[in-house]
């Protein structure tokens, strides 16, 4: 049933509705004690969606974040010069250093920010 809720969530376009269904999936998972990992992940997922909504609002809807993965969100933050946000996501979602640096590296190369690259 949790998977069903997820399936539903992935089809939803409306942001708030999507967060609600992900949360309900999280509840389903948390009822089963063997599924604590899945529950945790769903919790993260809901947090991410909320954060993305906030990011979109801050950038006046110019950059779309909603529904992207953590890595992609970080990448878009860096590409658009929101380095602080990227660092915050890293700590909020416990992104490993290795993965963060690779993402950052790719992002900086993409926008040809050689000063940023130099600062590595």
């Amino acid at each position: 049933s949790a998977v069903l809720a997820l399936d539903e969530a992935s089809r939803m376009v409306d942001p708030s509705g999507r967060i609600t269904t992900v949360k309900s999936a999280q509840k389903f998972f948390s009822e089963d004690k063997d599924r604590s990992f899945e529950a945790k992940m769903m919790d993260e997922s809901a947090r991410l969606l909320a954060l993305q909504q906030q990011l979109e609002a801050e950038s006046d809807g110019k950059i779309s974040f909603f529904g992207q993965s953590v890595n992609e969100t970080i990448r878009r933050c860096i590409v658009n010069g929101m380095l602080k946000k990227a660092d915050k996501i890293k700590s909020d979602f416990k992104v490993s250093d290795k993965r963060f640096w690779y993402t950052k590296l790719h992002a900086l190369t993409e926008i040809r920010d050689f000063e940023g690259l130099d600062a590595f």
Binding site: V3, L6, D7, A9, S10, V22, F37, E38, M41, M42, E44, S45, L48, G67, Q68, S69, V70, N71, E72, F93, K94, V95, S96, R99
Partner: peptide, 18 residues
Amino acid sequence: IKRDFLQTYGYNFLPLLL
């Protein structure tokens, strides 16, 4: 790894892992 995976490719792949 599963966590890295979901964060990289998106939480919508949880059913795949399941």
